[in-house]
Design a protein around this nucleic acid. Structure first.
Lengths: 212, 212
DNA sequence: ATTCGTTCTTGACAAGTGTCAAGATTCTGG
DNA sequence: CCAGAATCTTGACACTTGTCAAGAACGAAT
């Protein structure tokens, strides 16, 4: 009997600990989300913990309760960003019944991303560059890059499939192409160039049939 | 006669001023070059004027004699970097007599750049990302980007010409493609991935005949 | 209601930042 | 050689930074 009680107590304690961990982790993500706001606004170089705290409902000390240091926080931000990012086009890929439908769905989402999520994406490019200097970022960044490459590959494969073809280049080359185009368009867009979005769309519209 | 003397004096004074300006500008470039060393080592976010000064033969005060502020210095660095960068492949383009020769010359320089100038190039990617946040960088960065696009276009055009063809994509798409591939390879290379360089070369070797 | 562990706030610390001004040094024209 | 300009050094300033520790507020179990 003593053993049974001990077992039950253990289960209760374990459940409580899991619950606490979940709460702890949820808070971490809340904080990371708040940090992403400021990071997207100011960029990595200009963002301080106090600035993050001021643009949020938290005080600056709380970040050190949930993160071991600044890098830990930003790594958490990067990982959280990833989850939101890599499934952006999956709906379009899953529902499109023809090449045209896929093209238009893809282009629409692409344009929307450029317009509405410019801050988040410039942060991604910022952090990817930081990873070239700061080893602590590299693992997460390389992982996200792989995921994004896979995302592009899913689009291209489906597009090719709908035309009874196969993509003519490697996943790496395709990702480089689209990522490079988006990065360039994003910079122009942020610089106030109104033609950035339409030019990106034209380029992609013309490119899709030639690479897949 | 008075007028002649005045004229002569004016000429002398003008010449002196030009000389002073040249000296001033030469010093600015010396300082910018020193700054580039540290910037390439630490990245924009972690580089301070004092750090730059310590890694050079100058004291930190000098930088404020030659530059109005930190952004001014870094803009000068960016512009100076450009001049060295955009002519890297011109020799190869000018001397290559066949597609193979151009390919091998291009690939060799590409590999050498990845190996030997990784620091300078990660700085370029860093500053290009900074331009998405800091408006002061945008003009210079966009200009360099255009120059690099033109550089790639010269290579591709020549390659196509040597095969009696024409490039199949726009300058923007070609630049996006090669820049994206290089950026990705650079990150992998800096992360210690020994396969980064050969994989980049394979990719480019395979890509050249299909895009031109 | 009290106690105890979790969570959060506040304020301080040392180190580092860009900027500037006063003065030392060097260069240069007369 | 010397006065005045150009160049450079030094040290200070006000401010920001990441980090941490002491303790307040809170919540839950006894």
């Amino acid at each position: 009997m003593a053993r049974q009680v001990t077992g039950a107590a253990r289960r209760v304690a374990d459940a409580a600990e899991v619950l606490r961990d979940e709460k702890f982790n949820a808070r971490r993500i809340e904080l990371a989300e708040a940090a992403l706001e400021t990071l997207g606004e100011l960029g990595f170089a200009r963002t301080s913990l106090r600035e993050i705290a001021q643009n949020s409902a938290f005080t600056h000390g709380v970040f050190h309760y949930y993160f071991s240091d600044k890098l830990d926080l930003i790594c958490c931000c990067v990982r959280h960003y990833k989850a939101k990012c890599v499934t952006r086009y999956d709906d379009v890929v899953a529902t499109a019944k023809s090449r045209d439908e896929l093209t238009e769905g893809f282009l629409a989402k692409l344009a929307a991303t450029l317009q509405n999520e410019a801050r988040m994406h410039r942060l991604w490019y910022d952090l990817r560059s930081q990873a070239m200097f700061e080893a602590a970022f590299r693992k997460d960044v390389l992982e996200i890059d792989k995921s994004l490459e896979a995302m592009i590959w899913r689009i291209a494969s489906r597009y090719a499939e709908l035309g009874g073809k196969r993509p003519v280049s490697s996943p790496a080359a395709l990702y480089a192409l689209f990522d490079g185009l988006f990065q360039s368009a994003l910079l122009k867009h942020l610089a106030g160039d109104k033609t950035a979005a339409p030019e990106l769309l034209d380029e992609v519209r013309h490119l899709l049939p030639t690479v897949c």
